[in-house]
Design a protein around this nucleic acid. Structure first.
Length: 1068
RNA sequence: GGGCUCAUAGCUCAGUUGGUUAGAGCGCUACACUGAUAAUGUAGAGGUCCCUGGUUCGAGUCCAGGUGGGCCCA
């Protein structure tokens, strides 16, 4: 007895029960044991940041991960099953700050670094738990007890090892540069981090008047434009492009100098251009700046007088063609300042507050937030010409969304092009050996590597990888430590290293080491590392590459498991190409000179249903917990899996519901099987000898499906899986089950009925395995129910072997035959539609023309089925002989194309427009498989039979429907016998409807009470088809009643109105 | 400015090495079918396959240029 199933699945309920089953029966652990000795297939998980609950976009990626893991486990492969958490870096700190209500670094310092670190760890541990729970709910199988955490000392030590290696290669070192800097977080950000951070904002831009020094343009002003007025405190020069043309122009009763191309946008209306000047002539002029009186400026001018310099990057797309240069506040400026020896001013503190040397009016104010004061100071000094609102894209902190500034600072870099053995070429070679899916991911990686700048790995923060650099500030001597053991060896007080609770700030900062000759004590630099170092090292740290034992999964230990080093598969969203994929690649190339992964799959962006980017402020995303609780995980997983990798996914409840509806067909078939099997209790197990062509066909079609699904997963094409399964379920339901229904209804048990049960059972059971990776819950539910009568069946679908194609059942010819039959039936229904005769009305004859021998064989093989589908008594297979046939010819283009080249056009003309007699001559030859002579453009040619496509049409009075060489016509002439049969069918239909309405069981026996109207043909119908009526409707009796009989229903029988009633025959 | 990528029905998307009349699902309309059906079938409406040029006997498919969108870099 199977668990009954009806209606639509309640996924949330079904999934919860399944989770309990997995848990109590320890299915995951059994799977792991069962694959223990299998060949390795290594999925390396990219760590998810454990600082918040997961979102629905995480569920997308995690679905892919789970699909591939489950598939390979079913194939007996040994997997790692290790989830990873990203645990440190700015993203964690910012969330903890928010939770504690902190505004910035000073709050953290007041709170105490030790307390702060503990808070960070606690948050990570909390959300690691939350995410583990959420992922479990998604059906994701991992060894959740043994996830890796990037804050582990072992992870940190592995990064140290890597950085030491970089040092040996000559790639690592400090540099003084202008960097994007977040004044709130008080740290610089890397190239990685600033990449996504540009946002459209509107700022006030300002045009300023800078009086020109010297004699040449003594009364004039340079007109200078900037969007960051605060940087004027650090102005040391102006830059012009010597290639550009500049002008002197009169405006507001003064004379200004600016580039010719910017006059219109920069000057107020009513200006007058006086003369043109070459940019080169401006170089070398002096000027006085707008804030010349502040101490920074007066001091700087003593050694570096203000002057105009040349820069070829100055343009005219905005501004005035004259750029104010502040080497302390911009990367280009900094570089130009170095080249031209312009002097240097750093006007603000790390939190963007003006230093005291900016003068009493500005000192202590915030450069961005107190911009008003800057404007009024400029106004006070009479230097403002004009203020305009200006919309542009400006960088923001990717974690706290505050506007960034550019700040001169010393940071630590990994320089790819430095050293004896530069990294770039080695990285490119390693990347080229990876199988990128889709291919463009590999091109993006190459592009990134081509353009890769130095990698800023230092952050002036707290909770992160402590950079293993110890330095003596006085002498500048520094050393890189590669492990905790080495640290102990060189420590001034080794026992303090032993006492370290963990390798984090503030504890690690207390350790001092000796320099090489033990003459100086070195202290650790305070910086922590870029979080991408943490994630990038995991291919090594999770397997204990450095030989230490303190890893979460000891069985992966590298000494014993050399094989785990390069993952077979990784997958993340596309931006990870330049983030995690890159950092892993870099670290692996540094350590082992090879890529740490063999296949890398990327997917695109999740958008909402209206193609809008999902953002927290818009609240347009589907919340994960809500979605999984209301619609369930499986429909979501089906939606995710069906998305084409190269396309963004538009995600919302509508697509999930659409997926659920597609899956409903499968559940309907399952429900059909369970319902009838429970009535009949058939023998199930081994497939009996298969005789019925429907069974043969669906088993053959199943093999096609197995092959297709397997190929899709192995070819890293998840969308193919859903396509293959959906098309199979479609024909399973609408051809196999529909055509087999009567086989299941037969009241007696016979071989054919049993074969039908056994076949459908086998198909559904196999299907449950095919969907198991994508729909782990539904598959389990269906499998467990269907496998219940089987001996020795694994207790879970996930412990089953992946189905393989059985060559005994494979029959591609049969599969394509049925495609032809479906076409013929569809054409027949179209012809019937055309004739306007209802489907219940039997017709005497269908005339079918098949395109070829295989098609004719299909009609013969499926004759009974087609008769029934089309409701006709007879099929006449039109052959191609006789005078009534017309031939139409077409060139077989792929074949003749190569041979005839330019002549193809003429040949097509000739064949398609051939006279009937000529068409017949050629057509008949081809049908006989003989070559035929033709005359083409005045030349004799011989056409081989495979070069011509022949289709024939019967000349006939019937209306045809035809397509792809198939034609079907119906003989619509009706005999009285046929009319009566049609009426009988109407009667049956009416009674069945009545049974359903009355709520009878399928097996209930009934009485039919019917009113015999005047002039009705009812009596004739009963006489001719009484037995048929009774057996179809399970009616024990059929009797006439008076028109006054209570509660009669009405129905149409042909043109007549039938009044009747059905009653259940009492059990007695 | 450089790189990658996309453009096919009202919407979401298939379209394998170039091949004859470009498909599916959803939505809409009409009709039909229904003892698994929140199903299904048939038909209709809806397409300059973004544009231009090239290669070819033949281009949605290959190439070049352009337009528009997305992403990355400078």
């Amino acid at each position: 007895m199977f668990q009954p199933f009806e209606g639509i699945p309640d996924y949330p309920k079904l999934e919860k029960e399944t989770l309990e089953f997995w848990e109590t029966r320890q299915i995951f652990h059994k799977l792991r044991d069962q694959t223990e000795n299998g060949a390795r297939w290594d999925f390396q998980d990219g760590p998810i940041t454990a600082n918040n609950p997961m979102g629905v976009h995480h569920a997308w990626g995690r679905t892919y991960k789970d699909i591939f893991n489950r598939f390979h486990a079913m194939n007996g492969r040994r997997l790692r099953w290790q989830n990873g958490f990203d645990c440190q870096g700015l993203w964690v700190e910012v969330e903890v700050e928010k939770a504690l209500g902190f505004k910035g670094k000073p709050d953290i310092l007041a709170f105490g670094m030790e307390n702060f670190s503990r808070e960070c760890r606690a948050r990570v541990e909390k959300y690691a738990d939350v995410i583990s729970q959420q992922s479990t709910r998604l059906g994701m199988w991992m060894d959740w007890e043994r996830s890796y955490f990037t804050f582990d000392d072992s992870n940190i030590e592995h990064i140290w090892l890597f950085l030491q290696k970089c040092h040996e290669e000559g790639w690592l070192g400090p540099d003084y540069r202008v960097m994007p800097w977040c004044p709130r977080c008080e740290t610089s950000l890397s190239q990685h981090e600033s990449a996504d951070s540009y946002k459209e904002v509107t700022h006030r831009s300002v045009y300023l008047k800078f009086p020109v020094g010297g004699e040449k343009f003594a009364a004039d002003h340079f007109l200078v434009w900037t969007t960051t007025p605060w940087t004027l405190t650090a102005n040391v020069a102006l830059a012009v492009n010597p290639e550009l043309t500049y002008v002197r122009a009169k405006t507001d009763d003064i004379t200004v100098i600016l580039s010719k191309g910017t006059v219109q946008s920069a000057l107020k209306p009513g200006y007058e251009v006086l003369e043109e000047i070459s940019g080169a002539d401006l170089v070398g002029l002096t000027y006085s700046g707008p804030l010349d009186d502040i101490p920074f400026q007066t001091e700087s001018e003593k050694t570096h007088p203000r002057r105009v310099v040349a820069a070829d990057w100055v343009g005219e797309s905005d501004g005035t063609g004259i750029v104010h240069i502040a080497p302390g506040c911009g990367a280009d400026d900094f570089e130009l300042g170095q080249r031209e020896n312009l002097g240097f001013i750093a006007p603000v503190t790390t939190s963007a507050h003006f230093r005291s040397e900016c003068g009493p009016e500005l000192a202590g104010l915030h450069a961005l937030e107190d911009a008003e004061t800057v404007f009024s100071e400029l106004e006070k000094r009479g230097r403002l010409y004009r203020i305009q609102r200006y919309k542009h894209s400006y960088p923001h902190c990717w974690r706290c969304s505050n506007e960034l500034i550019f700040y001169a600072t010393q940071e630590w870099f990994i320089k790819a092009d430095a050293g004896q053995n530069p990294a770039r070429g080695r990285l490119q070679k390693a990347a080229s050996e990876v199988n990128w899916v889709p291919e463009y991911a590999g091109k993006r990686m190459q592009d990134w590597l081509n353009n890769m700048g130095d990698w800023n790995i230092s952050r002036k923060r707290f909770w992160g990888l402590p950079l293993p650099v110890w330095r003596d500030d006085e002498s500048g001597e520094w050393a890189v430590i590669g492990s905790r053991a080495e640290l102990r060896e060189r420590a001034v007080e080794p026992e303090r290293v032993d006492a370290l609770p963990e390798l984090h700030r503030p504890w690690i900062d207390e350790i001092e080491i000796w320099n090489a000759d033990k003459t100086r004590k070195l202290r650790r630099i305070p910086e922590v590392g870029d979080a991408w170092l943490d994630a990038g090292i995991v291919p090594f740290s999770t397997v204990g590459y450095n030989g230490a034992d303190d890893i979460r999964m000891p069985e992966l230990k590298i000494a014993a498991q050399e094989e785990w080093k390069a993952a077979d598969f990784i997958t993340e969203m596309r931006e990870q190409v330049r983030l995690w994929f890159f950092s892993m690649l870099f670290m692996s190339v540094a350590l082992e000179d090879r890529a740490p992964y063999k296949t890398a799959m990327v997917y695109e962006t999740m958008l909402d249903a209206d193609a809008m980017r999902i953002s927290k402020t818009l609240k347009n995303g589907v919340p994960y917990d809500e979605a999984v609780a209301t619609v369930g995980a499986d429909p979501m997983r089906w939606t995710f899996c069906g998305n084409t990798l190269t396309k963004d996914i538009r995600f919302g409840y509508k697509p999930i519901h659409e997926s659920a509806r597609k899956l409903l067909t499968l559940w309907n078939v399952y429900s059909f099987f369970v319902t009838y099997a429970n009535l009949d209790k058939p023998q199930l197990g081994e497939l009996p000898r298969v005789e019925n062509i429907l069974d043969k066909w669906i088993l053959a079609r199943l093999q096609t499906c197995i092959a297709g699904v397997t190929k899709s997963i192995e070819g890293i094409e998840p969308a193919g899986v859903t396509r293959e399964i959906e098309s199979f379920v479609e024909v399973l339901s609408n051809w196999y089950v529909r055509r087999s229904r009567r086989r299941f209804w037969k009241s007696e048990s016979d071989a054919d009925k049993n074969a039908a049960y056994a076949t459908l059972h086998h198909v559904l059971l196999t299907l449950s395995k095919l969907i198991a990776p994508v729909l782990p819950f539904s598959a389990e539910n269906i499998y467990r129910n269907l496998s219940s009568p089987l001996q020795n069946a694994p207790e879970s679908v996930h412990l089953c072997a992946w189905p393989v194609v059985d060559e005994n059942w494979r029959d591609d010819a049969l599969v394509s035959q049925v495609e032809g039959v479906l076409q013929a039936v569809s054409l027949g229904l179209a012809a019937r539609k055309d004739s306007k005769i209802r489907a219940r009305q039997p017709l005497s004859k269908a005339l079918i023309q098949a395109p070829d021998q295989n098609g004719r064989a299909a009609i013969e093989a499926w004759r009974e089925t087609i008769l029934d589908e089309l409701n006709v008594k007879e099929i006449e297979l039109l052959d191609d002989a006789g005078d009534l046939v017309t031939y139409s010819l077409k060139a077989n283009l792929p074949v003749v194309g190569k041979r005839f080249g330019k002549g193809v056009g003429a040949l097509r003309q000739l064949l398609e427009n051939a006279e009937p007699s000529e068409a017949k001559r050629i057509g008949e030859s081809v049908k006989r498989g003989e070559a035929v002579e033709i005359e083409l453009s005045g030349e004799k040619q011989t056409l081989e039979p495979n070069e011509v496509l022949v289709s024939t049409q019967q000349q006939s009075g019937y209306s045809f429907a035809s397509e792809n060489g198939w034609s079907v016509a119906l003989d619509t002439s009706l005999t009285d016998e046929l009319v009566l049969e049609g009426l009988a069918r109407d009667f049956v239909r009416a009674v069945q409807e009545g049974r359903k309405r009355a709520g009878f069981e399928v097996s209930d026996r009934i009485s039919i009470l019917v009113v015999d109207e005047e002039n009705s043909r009812l009596a004739d119908v009963l006489e001719g088809f009484g037995d048929y009526l009774q057996s179809e409707t399970l009616a024990d009796e059929l009797r006439f009643v008076d028109a006054a009989y209570p509660e009669l229903s009405e129905a149409k029988m042909g043109e007549e109105t039938l009044r009747f009633r059905v009653e259940k025959v009492s059990e007695i």
